[in-house]
């Protein structure tokens, strides 16, 4: 039973209206959770993580461990003046950040977030779940183009163009690598993919190693991690923003609330990337002792930590090198991986 069905079954009514209310409430709860996750890990955690990597201390004066910086930052960002530059293409400029944020949030509709107090926190579980996630995540590219093009700023323009080139080059390897997992699981339904990883792969000295696809096919896992870094635009692939080159890329002209939306969309995209990786490679919410939901969040934050690590330690590649790595390297490797997987699955 999905989260939506659980909630609508609690309602005194039934039918489409109950389904709708159930879906709305479920989405609201999941989105609220994601927002607080961004607030903690994006505003406070990011500072602390980067500081740890770069030998600094970071916030420690606002409340315990500097946690109240979240409040200060929220007030600061929301109370700033929204500067609308001359000559922006108004509806597109306004919609860009919204499209980016909502596309990332839409992806979470099908992610199996695991159990908490006996509740299954997956909002919906369609048959084509994986295809749906990739599709919604890709809508963000449209938002990037809108933001880059409508800002009436050459840096934004360059950033937007770079973002498109990058997403084109990396989305295909990402999806193709994802398909190789589908071959193993035999289903696009995310709950099926998670269930398929529940079996024991080998048992080492009494410890059962589950057949997570990261263990079954580590090559695909690495490919996916790299392509995902490019997808979320973090070092070494942060060329669409590339501070020091094109100032802030497509988000140069955004301030105040719109900037918050851009920022939010970036983090939710990273979390969505982490959620996809956790679902199709790391056994989803599976894990010992703790509730599944907690494991899921730990896995998402693990991927987040990895992106922050890369950001602190790896140089950025140049735009032409980025495209080259995407089209000449990752694409070939991901197709090779797909064909090999197909052969192996076929033979077994």
């Amino acid at each position: 039973m999905t989260f939506t069905e659980t909630i609508s079954s609690l309602l005194p009514i039934s039918g489409p209206i109950a389904d709708f209310i159930g879906g709305a409430v479920a989405s609201l709860l999941i989105i609220s959770f994601l927002m607080s996750l961004v607030a903690v890990s994006g505003i406070w955690g990011k500072r602390k993580i980067t500081a740890a990597f770069t030998d600094r201390i970071a916030v420690n004066r606002h409340g315990p461990f500097g946690l109240l910086i979240i409040v200060a930052d929220a007030v600061r960002l929301l109370s700033k003046e929204l500067i609308v530059p001359d000559g922006v293409d108004r509806p597109a400029w306004d919609l860009g950040p919204l499209v980016m944020t909502s596309s990332a949030l839409l992806g979470f509709a099908v992610i199996p977030m695991g159990d908490l107090f006996g509740l299954n926190l997956q909002i919906a579980d369609p048959q084509a779940g994986l295809a749906y996630v990739f599709a919604t995540a890709s809508i963000a590219s449209v938002g990037l183009v809108m933001a880059g093009y409508s800002s009436n700023n050459k840096y934004s323009m360059l950033g937007g163009l770079r973002a498109v080139a990058q997403n084109l080059a990396y989305e295909i390897p990402l999806v193709v690598t994802g398909v190789s997992v589908v071959l193993f699981a035999g289903s696009l339904q995310l709950s099926e993919i998670v269930a398929a990883q529940g079996e024991t792969l080998v048992s080492l000295g009494g410890v059962a190693i589950p057949s997570w696809y990261a263990f079954v096919n580590p090559f695909a896992f690495i490919l996916f991690m790299i392509a995902n870094l490019a997808e979320v635009g973090r070092n070494p692939f942060d060329v669409p923003e590339a501070p020091t080159e094109i100032v802030a890329g497509w988000q140069t002209e955004y301030s105040s609330v719109y900037f918050v939306l851009c920022y939010l969309s970036e983090f939710i995209h990273i979390f969505l990337g982490g959620a996809i990786i956790a679902t199709i490679f790391l056994g989803g919410p599976a894990g010992p002792f703790l509730p599944g939901f907690v494991w899921m969040v730990i896995k998402i934050l693990g991927v987040y930590l990895f992106t922050q690590w890369c950001r602190s330690a790896i140089p950025r590649v140049r735009i032409d090198q980025l495209i080259e790595i995407g089209w000449k390297g990752l694409l070939e490797l991901s197709f090779a991986n797909l064909v090999l997987t197909a052969v192996i699955v076929g033979l077994l």
């Binding site: 942060d238 020091t244 950001r311 140089p315 950025r316």
Partner: peptide, 18 residues
């Protein structure tokens, strides 16, 4: 220079400053 290449205030920048 590392800042220009790495793109953000990264480890190497802070190490050199330290």
């Amino acid at each position: 220079f590392a800042l220009d290449i790495y793109g953000d205030f990264t480890a190497i920048f802070m190490y050199a400053m330290r």
